[in-house]
Amino acid sequence: MDVFVYGTLTEPSTAERLLDRYEFDGRAVLRGLYRVDGSYPTLAPGGRCEGRLLSTSEVATLDRYEGVDSGLYVRRSLPADDGSTVECYIGDPAQLGVAVTWPGTGPFADRVDRYLDTSDVGVTIR
């Protein structure tokens, strides 16, 4: 499975510490979301973000690292320009100390889903 990474997981030392099997598959650009730095990097609506593709079957390990169970990050599938799907982690700005507003009301995950459903968000693989 390919994962678009844009923060600490772009570092080989982090991936090596966490994962038994992984490979970096090159550079990618995420359109429709841009990087914002807080306690940890996250994404915000609009713009674009440079990153890397990390290929691994150990998504459960990445979910634990990103705090998916606690709601720190949500993992979402995004379309790529080659017809594939790429996973991406998006952090809750309230928990990361970032002044970012996601449109709409309700829980963070629901606002992310609505934005992704109504916006041109996707990954260009280089």
Rank of each mutant, 00 (worst) to 15 (best):
L19V: 05
P45G: 02
A109L: 08
E87V: 00
L9I: 07
A44C: 07
D92Q: 14
A109F: 07
E16I: 03
G104Y: 15
P93T: 09
V59L: 15
S57M: 10
S39Q: 06
D20R: 14
V5A: 00
P103G: 13
V112H: 10
G91H: 03
V123C: 05
R111P: 04
T101S: 15
L62H: 10
V100G: 00
R64F: 00
P12Q: 12
G106F: 07
R48N: 00
T101Q: 12
G51V: 07
A80R: 13
L30N: 02
L19R: 09
D25L: 13
S57I: 04
V98T: 04
D120K: 11
S13V: 14
S39Y: 09
V100M: 00
R17Y: 09
A94E: 12
G106D: 02
R111F: 06
D69V: 01
A80G: 11
P12H: 10
D69M: 01
D113V: 08
S70H: 06
Y115V: 08
D25P: 02
C88I: 13
T105R: 15
L30R: 02
G47S: 01
A60E: 15
T61C: 12
G71S: 04
R17W: 10
S70R: 13
A44P: 14
R64Q: 04
V29E: 05
T101N: 08
T61W: 09
L19T: 03
R114W: 07
V3S: 06
R76A: 13
G97I: 06
D82Q: 03
D82S: 04
Y115H: 11
T124D: 02
A44V: 09
G38C: 06
L53C: 00
D113K: 09
P107R: 14
D120Q: 08
D113P: 02
R35I: 00
V59C: 01
G71W: 03
D20S: 11
P41M: 01
R114Y: 07
L30I: 02
G106S: 08
V74H: 06
Y115T: 07
Y65L: 05
L116T: 10
V98Y: 00
T61S: 08
E58R: 14
G46Q: 15
I125W: 03
T10W: 05
Y6A: 00
R75L: 02
T85D: 06
Y6N: 01
